[in-house]
Simulated assay, not measured.
Amino acid sequence: MKKFVVMLLCLSGISVLHAGETAGQAEVRTLIEKAYLHGAWNEQNVADMEAGFHKDFAIFSPKGKEMARYEIADWVAGIKKRKASKDYDPNRSKVEYKITQLDVTGGAASARVELIQNGKLIFTDYLSFIKFEDGWKIAAKVYHRHK
C-alpha cells in the first residue's frame, strides 16, 4: 500500500509537467503563462506582471544603429492608462501562443514564444530569465515583429 501511495504521488507530480520537462522548465513555463502571456497580453493583469518581471526588466529593440530600451515600469504604466480609458477593448491584446523553445541551465533560462492573433503570427519573442532567492523572474526580451 505504501508503495502504491508513493507511486501515485510521483505520477500525479509528473502529470503536471509537459512530456520530458524538468521541474525548472515547468516553473519557467508557468511564469511565462501567468506573468507574460496572461499578465501582459490576454488579461493585462499588472499585478501578475509586477510579480513575474524583474524590476530592471526591459524590452530591447533596434533603433537605427542604437538599441532602444522599453522599461517594465513604462509598460505597466501604459497598460494601466489603456485600461482606464473609456475606449479600452479587453480583446484587442488577446493572443494565442506557442512556447516553441524552453531551455533552463541552473539559474538561467531562455524561451522562444510565438504570439498569434487572428490566426496570424505577429511576434516571435525571446525571453530571458534569472532565478533569484524568491524564484524565477523575467529579465529581458528581444523580439521580431512579423509583417
Rank of each mutant, 00 (worst) to 15 (best):
M1L: 13
K3P: 00
F4M: 13
F4S: 14
F4D: 15
V5E: 12
V6T: 09
V6N: 06
L8Y: 06
L9F: 09
C10W: 07
C10E: 09
C10P: 00
L11D: 02
S12R: 03
G13R: 01
G13L: 14
I14C: 13
S15L: 15
L17F: 10
H18M: 13
A19H: 11
A19R: 11
G20W: 04
G20R: 07
G20Q: 10
E21F: 06
T22L: 06
V28C: 02
V28K: 05
I32H: 03
E33F: 00
K34M: 09
Y36N: 05
L37H: 07
A40N: 12
A40S: 13
A40W: 11
Q44Y: 04
V46E: 08
V46A: 05
A47K: 12
D48C: 00
D48R: 09
M49K: 01
E50F: 01
G52I: 03
H54L: 08
H54P: 00
K55V: 10
K55Q: 14
F57C: 05
A58T: 04
F60E: 06
S61D: 08
P62F: 08
P62I: 09
K65H: 11
K65C: 07
E66P: 01
A68V: 05
R69V: 14
R69I: 12
Y70R: 14
E71I: 03
I72S: 07
W75F: 14
V76W: 07
V76Q: 06
A77R: 12
I79D: 05
K81Y: 04
R82M: 15
K83S: 10
S85W: 05
S85R: 01
S85I: 03
K86F: 07
K86Q: 12
K86A: 15
D87S: 11
D89Y: 05
P90I: 05
S93D: 14
S93L: 09
S93C: 08
K94L: 12
K94N: 11
V95C: 09
K98Q: 12
K98F: 01
I99C: 03
Q101A: 12
L102S: 05
V104S: 04
T105C: 08
G107Y: 09
A109W: 04
S110H: 14
S110Y: 13
A111M: 04
A111W: 01
R112F: 02
E114W: 01
L115C: 03
N118A: 15
G119N: 02
G119P: 02
I122L: 11
F123W: 11
T124G: 07
T124F: 00
D125N: 13
D125A: 03
Y126R: 09
Y126T: 07
L127Q: 07
I130G: 11
I130W: 10
E133T: 11
G135V: 04
W136P: 00
I138P: 01
A139K: 11
A140W: 02
A140Y: 03
Y143L: 12
H144D: 10
R145A: 15
H146R: 12
H146N: 14
H146K: 13
